[in-house]
Each structure stands twice: as C-alpha cells, then as structure tokens.
Design a protein around this nucleic acid. Structure first.
Lengths: 232, 232
DNA sequence: CCGGTGCGTGAAGATCCCGTAAAAGTGGCT
DNA sequence: AGCCACTTTTACGGGATCTTCACGCACCGG
C-alpha cells in the first residue's frame, strides 16, 4: 500500500489529512516536528511526504534539505505563506510542489496522484551509512565511531555529509566549498584545509596514510571507503 | 540547452514568457493552438511544456492526453480557472503542475526547475571507459590499472581525459596544449613530451611499442585502444 | 656523410599547495 | 559583561607538482 507521511504541528490538520487520505486507500503516518519528520522519512520509507512549513523546531527548507540528503521521495509543501520567496526557497531546496493553505482536498489528492505517477521508480538509499567502525545517520545527523557518539560542529557535519554521500567520487574544492559554505566561497580553499583537518582528527584518519579522506593535490578530496573496498 | 515549449493563444503571454525564459538561458519555442502544441511537442522534443488551458481549438485536458500518448515530458498548466474540478481534471489527465494566472515569474521559474530536476535522470551515460586492464571513470575522475587505483596529477589526468575522449583521432600538439593548459601555451610542446612520458610510464606504455598513446611525428598524438581499434 | 630537427628521457630548480597550529573574530548564553 | 563554542584568519614548514634545462637518439634531406 502507498505510504504517506504527514508532517504538521497542528493535530487538527494531521487528523483531517489522515482521515481523508486513509479513506482513499493510503497508509498514513504522521509526525509533529521537523526532527520526527526527518526520522520518519528515513525509517518509514514513505512514498510521499506532506510537509507543513511552519514547524516549531526546524525551518521548513531545512527539513527538505535533510530529507533530500538520503531520499528522493516526493515532497509536497503545505503552507499558509503565500509569498513567492517562500515558494522559491522551498522548491529550490528540493520540494516538488507547494500548496497554499487553505487548500481543497480534491486538488490535494490530484496533486498527490500527479507526484506519485512521476516518482514511480522508487529508490530509497539507506539513511545510515557504515564505514568500518564509523556510522553516519543522515536522518538524525548522528555520527558514531566505534559505537561512541562523535560530536561534530555544523560545518564539520556538512562537509562529512557531502563526502559520504558521494563515495569514490573526486569532489573539487569549488564543489565542496559551494556545497558546504554556499555560493561566493569558491576561493576560500583554506577553509577546506582547516575543516578536513578537523574531520580527520576526529575520525581518526591521517593525511599521510588516508583510510577515509584522500587528498587529490590541486583538485580536491575523495571519500575512499564503503561497500566496495577492493581487497588487497 | 534546455528546450521549453510554450502553448498559449495570447501573443502577449507568449512574448512575456519567451523573454523571461530566454533570459534565464532556456531555448523557447511557442505554439498558438492546441494542434500546433501537440505537433510541436512531438517534433521539437521539448524538455518541458507550459500549457494554457484556454485554447480556442482543443480542450486543455485533450491536449494533455494527446501529448501523453507519445511523451512523458513534464507539463505545467497555466490557467485562469481556479476551480478545483479544473485542476483535478488537468492533473489526472497527465499534467505535472497547475499554476493559476496571474502568476509570479519567480515562482514559475522555481516550479520549472523542480519539474526539470525530477525529469533529469534520463541521461546516464556510461561514464566509465575500458581499455584492456585500464579503466577511466570520467564521473568519479578515477583511473584504475589492473584493478588498482592509479594516482594521476591534475595535469596528467587532464591530458589522459583529452586522449581517451577522442579515441582514434589525431590530436595535434596545438589542440592538446590548448585543451590541457589553456590558451597561450600553443608553443610549449616540451610540456607535452614531459607529460606524455609521465602518462606512458604510469600506464605501462612504451613509446617504442605503443599500445595506448601513439606518436605522430611532427603533428601530435593519437589514442589507440578501445572498442574501435582502427586497422593498420 | 653530416648537420638539423623533433622526440624521449632524466633530473634539478622554482612554485604552488597542503597540513598543521594557533591567534583573532563572532555570536549565543548565563 | 564574561564565558564558551565555533568560525575565520594568519603564519609557516614540507612536500608534491610544475617548469625548465640538458642530453642522447632517430630520422631526413642535402
């Protein structure tokens, strides 16, 4: 059965959507906060997500970005905000559709069908990546080393995420800088050295004998580890 | 370049959309009737269609159905009708999004990007080239020889890429120098000797008995290997 | 037969980039 | 305000890479 995840902080909305969706044959799960929503997206493996932007704990676009780090599941945003800037931000963060409250249920169901029709080839990458003694939980943004939780700063985590979600690929300085720091930082390659150093230290990796992060001089960095570590 | 087909009977709308889309780097075609639109969708092979529902000759949903009979191209409907029934009909006929006029151009562009992003993964070329024991993964920027990763410097890789992406073709000194080092290096043919030498050494090739890189004296170099090894 | 030209080869010097540490700046919290 | 965590900036050795130089050799035409 098609699973729908509803993320909204208002119980009334959750109940209304649950009822309508269930009566049309959908399997409905709900979450009341952004954190719960991201975790639910990872563990429930929904086929589509309805996301309210006005969540108490996380910014809506942040929820979209986090879900997008491990899943291509269709996301339909529900929001009271009708400003263009909000729509553009949400859509560019990775949302597939944006519906302004109040909405008609028939229209919502039609948009739901349209998105499901497109997303047919469902593929869900695992939300927890394992590399030997290192685990990265993309949904909870939790990193553990040898079972011990490892504290990373926001920037460190963003860099690690960019690396582990592109294993084996050579990521150029420019690409990493724009991914982690945003546009306009393409020249700040010193940032990369500083934060790669911090990551290597915390992950127990060494630049001279890399097991995780390989330096490609003059070009960028490469995450070497994962499902296909060629045997000696 | 990304091709957009605009189907609308009002010349003003067509012109406005053409201008806005073109200024954002899209290649725009237009049609003024439903028939023209369907033909344009079939012959132009657009990457996305903007479709006005209020066409004089055909009903909007009929246009969608006809296009859908031969193409999965994303369709974004533009309409003055705000009734739920119209939206449901269009979406269920096969449209991917429905925007009510008047609309903001920023929002429209964001929805356009969202649809294009979804339709993206249709082109996945075999980015890995094989030559006997040598593999060149252009996407990952990874070179392996007999299964072992081979470390190449930035310049060495650039030269190798220029060679393997033009197999069998005679590449002149000037062409290679400009491709790898950029304009202004057309005379530095010594660079080529030095780096061709380095590549041959790392790839296990010999100038006297070339299996990969052939010297064409006085002219340039030629990559000889792969699916189409030119006859002597 | 002989000099010129271009290529292959090795290696030295210069330059750029990386790793690393630590100081300075920033913003949040009590 | 003052502390704390984090980010940004500065500084500096060491190493990788690029650039340049030198030399031997093959080929070619005179």
């Amino acid at each position: 059965m098609t699973r729908i995840l509803v993320v909204d902080d208002e119980p009334q909305i959750r109940r209304a959507l649950r009822t309508s969706l269930a009566s049309h044959g959908y399997d409905v799960q709900t979450a009341g906060t952004g954190e719960e929503g991201v975790v639910g997206a990872a563990e429930g493996g929904p086929d589509l997500i309805f996301l309210d932007l006005g969540l108490p704990d996380l910014d809506g676009t942040e929820v979209i970005r986090r879900v997008r780090s491990f899943s291509d599941v269709p996301i339909i945003v529900l929001s009271v905000r009708d400003r263009q800037a909000d729509k553009v931000a949400a859509l560019d963060a990775g949302a597939d559709d944006y519906v302004t409250k109040p909405f008609g249920m028939e229209e919502l169901l039609a948009r739901l069908r349209a998105q499901l029709r497109r997303a047919q080839p469902e593929e869900a990458g695992p939300a927890v990546l394992r590399f030997d003694e290192l685990e990265v939980d993309l949904a909870r943004r939790l990193v553990t080393l040898e079972g011990e939780p490892l504290h990373l700063t926001k920037t460190e985590y963003a860099l690690l995420e960019a690396l582990v979600t592109n294993p084996g690929k050579l990521l150029t300085h420019q690409w990493l800088l724009q991914k982690v720091w945003g546009r306009g930082y393409a020249e700040e390659s010193q940032y990369l050295r500083v934060y790669v150093r911090a990551l290597r230290r915390k992950l127990g990796d060494a630049a001279s004998a890399p097991r995780l992060i390989l330096t490609e001089p003059g070009v960028g960095y490469r995450w070497i580890a994962g499902p296909e570590p060629g045997p000696s």
